[in-house]
């Protein structure tokens, strides 16, 4: 029957096509699995220093090690607790891993003039940056503070964490040590 042969021919071509598609699908899948998701880099955004200069967010990174970027505000109790807790450990952390901590204040013009006196008054030795209208905060999708990022010397975001509970500082240091290149 002519109808039957048409159907057979159709089935054969379809099968052939499907068969030849299999390696394509396979190599696509394989290709995707070995194609690792690129690690997101720190976005380049304008931030301010305490003396009012505008700098690019990626220009302040530690060139010889990891950078911790911590978003905080003068009115945020857990943020101040976190930065106060790490204050006592920062010297040892620097010695052991050469890590640099940057505390980015999201205070707006209501409290921005208190940031420097407060940081100094509490004896913090972090680099302080200002993000008064939240440009940096939004580019990193920070919705609640404190929010901490760990960045390598290439600017890649290795790890992030939201909120602070006493004891989290030990976990942060474990992560820093894990990502610090062994000499």
């Amino acid at each position: 029957m002519p109808g039957e042969s048409i159907l057979r021919a159709f089935l054969i071509t379809t099968m052939r096509k499907t068969l030849t598609l299999i390696p394509l699908i396979a190599c696509l899948l394989f290709g995707f699995t070995i194609h690792q998701e690129p690690i997101r880099k720190l976005p380049v955004v304008d931030v301010k220093t305490l003396d009012g200069q505008i700098v690019k967010s990626n220009s302040v990174l530690n060139k010889n090690g990891l950078t911790v970027i911590n978003f905080w505000a003068t009115w945020c109790k857990p943020c101040v607790l976190e930065l106060n807790t790490i204050k006592e450990l920062y010297g040892d952390w620097k010695k052991e891993t050469n890590v640099k901590i940057i505390a980015v204040s999201i205070d707006d013009s209501r409290n921005i003039s208190k940031v420097g006196p407060m940081a100094n008054g509490k004896g913090w030795e972090y680099d302080i940056l200002l993000d008064p209208n939240g440009d940096f905060k939004r580019s990193l999708n920070v919705n609640n503070i404190p929010h901490t990022f760990l960045i390598n010397d290439k600017g890649e975001i290795l790890w992030q964490h939201n909120s602070f509970a006493p004891g989290d500082e030990d976990e942060l240091f474990e992560i820093i040590k894990k990502f610090t290149p062994k000499p």
Partner: peptide
């Protein structure tokens, strides 16, 4: 706005 700050002391 004005301020002074040194190690362990700050005024705004």
């Amino acid at each position: 706005l004005g301020g002074y700050s040194g190690k362990g002391f700050g005024i705004s």
